[in-house]
Write a protein that binds this DNA or RNA. Structure first.
Length: 203
DNA sequence: AGATCGATTATCT
DNA sequence: GATAATCGATCTC
């Protein structure tokens, strides 16, 4: 499967967020290939988006990577215990990102089960299987993504995104999650997910 | 099935 | 010192 190139990421956050649906996130680690289909994303539109860390051009050490080239990772820790994985998009100097909110496990189910629940996949309960990667913090835990991977180049060989198998699906467009502080921006329809997919975090 | 609430710490002010 | 792009446990219906 073909790895997405720099130009894929060098576009507006809303465009990339929609197009990332159905693509495959891959993390090669310790000789294991962990992969999962992206089923839910959110666009963070930068300086004019009250929900974005880069709102009004805020530029702190944490958000610095968003001001750089597209196609790099922005990984931060939230609530003191969860990681969130984002893709930096749009041209250098335009601090936009796409949050990956949910994925559907494909390869490396054993790895994911161990990282999430510390047990083999086969002994997971039904509800544990369903909640392996259906949220931004959960997928980071399952795929071993944390802040040590902040600023990684997705156009390289350890962590990257591949074009998915051609597939038909409907896209649901709705409000983002967990940004009640963002005033008018909290209702902007900048969350996208694959309709009827079991792994979506919030319907 | 839905509501509420505590955990826990990097980051910013 | 306050906050947070979340999660999971616990409670009630």
């Amino acid at each position: 499967m073909k790895k997405l190139d720099r130009e894929f990421y060098n576009r507006d956050s809303i465009v990339v967020a929609r197009e990332l649906l159905g693509k495959v996130l891959v993390h090669e680690i310790d000789g294991n290939r962990i992969s999962a289909k992206i089923v839910e994303t959110e666009a963070y539109m930068g300086v004019e988006d009250k929900a974005a860390h880069s709102y009004e051009g805020r530029r702190t050490p944490r958000v610095e990577v968003m001001y750089g080239e597209p196609g790099f990772t922005y990984v931060f820790m939230i609530y003191g215990m969860h990681s969130c994985f984002n893709v930096v998009v749009n041209k250098k100097g335009t601090p936009q990102a796409v949050l990956i909110r949910a994925v559907e496990p494909m390869e490396g189910l054993e790895w994911m089960a161990q990282k999430r629940f510390g047990t083999p996949y086969e002994v997971l309960t039904k509800s544990q299987r369903k909640s392996l990667t259906n949220g931004p913090g959960k997928l980071c835990r399952a795929c071993s993504i944390d802040r040590s991977l902040n600023g990684m180049d997705l156009c390289s060989n350890e962590l990257y995104i591949e074009g998915g198998i051609k597939e038909e699906f409907d896209i649901v467009t709705t409000k983002r999650v967990g940004i009640d502080y963002a005033e008018e921006a909290k209702d902007f329809p900048w969350r996208f997910y694959i309709k009827d997919n079991e792994n979506v975090s919030v319907k």
